[in-house]
Amino acid sequence: MARPTTKAQLINAAETEFAKLLDLVGSMGESAASVPLFFGPGFAGKEAHWARDKNLRDVAVHLHEWHRLLIAWVNTNQAGDAQPFLPAPYSWKTYGDLNMEFWRKHQHTAHADSLRLLGESHRQVMELIDRFSDAELFTQGHFAWTGTTTLGSYCISATSSHYDWAIKKIRTHIRASARKA
């Protein structure tokens, strides 16, 4: 799927990838909620998320928390309180620590609750996106608080691109688990 450049494309990509994610999770059955993610014997992915996310709940709450970041950031800036996307003390160099904070926060969240939270925050992000025009979403510099990146780019990162990441991760688990069986 090409990277969206219009509001309609953004909405379509986000909804399409979210539906694919939910279908994939649904295809795994109820037992998938308690099964640890397995990526293959001796698998050692380079990125921290491969070791961080132990189950589907961890993936779902990760997506949910990044939705919440986007929503809070947009609403705060729209209210006139200029804030960076990442909350202090985090930066793009230390956002992995923020991801670990999210992981720790949700270690007692039930699998079903994680999916409910993800569904709710997805809906809220889609409502947020719908408030903006094509120009507001995709004109560089339209909002001073987005810096050199468009608001639409942040929305893509928090929705369709992030859903694609989760889908790839879950598919890796499914393939490795099938080979193991």
Rank of each mutant, 00 (worst) to 15 (best):
N12C: 03
D113C: 01
R123F: 06
T5P: 03
F132Y: 15
L98G: 07
G141N: 13
F132I: 11
P41A: 15
K46P: 09
P87L: 04
L118V: 03
E65P: 01
A32P: 00
L86R: 02
T148F: 05
M100W: 12
H106Q: 02
A82H: 13
W103P: 00
I11A: 12
H67Q: 14
E65M: 14
L118Y: 12
G26A: 03
E127G: 14
G26W: 02
D134A: 04
I170E: 03
G45F: 08
R3N: 14
K169E: 05
I129L: 10
D130W: 03
T159E: 10
R175L: 09
F43V: 07
P87T: 02
A112M: 02
K54N: 05
S34F: 07
V59F: 05
P87R: 00
N99P: 00
Y154A: 09
K168T: 11
T172I: 07
P36N: 08
W103R: 01
G42Y: 06
F132H: 11
S121V: 09
S121T: 13
D134F: 04
N55G: 08
L24F: 03
V125E: 09
N77D: 06
D97E: 15
F102C: 00
A2R: 14
K7G: 10
G26H: 06
W145C: 03
N99I: 00
T146H: 10
R104L: 13
G29T: 00
Q124D: 15
L128D: 02
Q9D: 13
A44Q: 15
S157P: 01
S157R: 12
A33K: 07
G147T: 00
N12D: 15
K169D: 01
L115Y: 08
G45V: 09
K169G: 01
H108M: 10
L118S: 00
S177K: 14
H64N: 14
K46E: 13
V74P: 11
G96E: 10
S157F: 10
A112T: 12
E101H: 04
T148C: 02
L86C: 02
A88M: 10
W92N: 10
G40L: 01
K54Y: 04
G147R: 06
G29R: 00
F39Q: 00
S153N: 14
L22K: 15
P84N: 13
M28P: 03
S91A: 10
R171V: 14
T149H: 11
L56D: 04
S27T: 05
H162V: 04
L63W: 02
R3P: 07
F138L: 02
R179V: 12
G152C: 08
I170N: 08
K168Y: 08
I11N: 06
L86K: 08
L56M: 05
